[in-house]
Write a protein that binds this DNA or RNA. Structure first.
Lengths: 158, 158
DNA sequence: TTCGATGCAAATAGTTTGCATTCTA
DNA sequence: TAGAATGCAAACTATTTGCATCGAA
């Protein structure tokens, strides 16, 4: 299953920087590995293992899915990469770096990126109410976006 | 994938009541269907499709997994059942009824049930901060439970 | 020259689906 | 007795793993 990385995520600003981190952690630099890292930078957001293996639709060389999974796992173990589950599809991978969460609307399905700062208050409230140090980076916040909430309220009024 | 049920969940206090609801919704009552409902009542919490099909380890007759999935889907569509994804395993099903959420600790893995009331404040904060009408019933709140948070803080101090 | 990493294929887990048959309403 | 639901098996999606081979350090 997933190897949880404890401690702060690693921030890599470029492919080269990420590769340097890999080396420091004792991982070898190979073509397949480089591809995974490049794909994650190129994706500018989220990508599934399948997409990475396919070279993001042929934009990059790509490689074997099995190896992609193994590499994502290793990169995740050292804190360079993490993944989210936004719904019922495949897990989606991203560079760890800055804290970012997601909100998915139950009605329209649109998803929104949430900056870590926007969650400070929410985390504070969760701490008070539940005594939990919440981390909203693995699963999204699911619910109704303001637009859909408004629409649903209207429909009920009829 | 999942058929989202919109509107309030249905509360059924007993197997008989649930069956009545099924009938009202035009669903036929069959042995396999009854088993799914009985299993969910007997589970007193969460159960996977596989577990239900196995009759909760032989305590109940059980039936075909495919049919169990189909039935869970139908029951979910009418709002009698819902499911959660607590981690990387199979989806876990429960009777819809009362609002309940889950919190899972990243470190010790323990999970806790959260009553809907405990989340009012949190939902309020999410509304203020993100403009979202959050629903914490599909994915758990992940993070560190107070005990593990304390332990981690101690270890860092060293 | 040694292991770590790869590619390929097979295995596994979870879930969905096609179809002939059964059974409820 | 029409059509909803079942059981069984096959298909499918996401992910993991065994193993012979390759290549980075």
């Amino acid at each position: 299953v997933t190897v949880a990385h404890r401690g702060p995520p690693l921030e890599a600003a470029s492919v080269e920087e990420a590769i340097e981190v890999l080396r420091e952690r004792g991982l070898r630099m190979t073509a397949a590995r480089r591809l995974v890292v490049e794909a994650l930078f190129a994706a500018e957001g989220l990508a599934s293992a399948e997409q990475i293996a396919a070279g993001l639709d042929g934009r990059l060389p790509g490689s074997d899915v099995g190896s992609v999974y193994r590499n994502l796992e290793r990169l995740e173990a050292i804190g360079l990469v993490r993944h989210v589950h936004l719904g019922h599809g495949p897990g989606l991978y991203m560079l760890a770096g800055r804290e970012r969460a997601f909100a998915v609307c139950d009605a329209c399905g649109r998803r929104r990126t949430i900056d870590g700062g926007e969650l400070q208050q929410v985390r504070e409230t969760v701490r008070e109410q539940l005594g939990y140090e919440a981390d909203f980076t693995h699963f999204p916040i699911v619910g109704l976006c303001s637009r859909c909430a408004r629409r649903e309220a209207q429909q009920e009024r009829r």
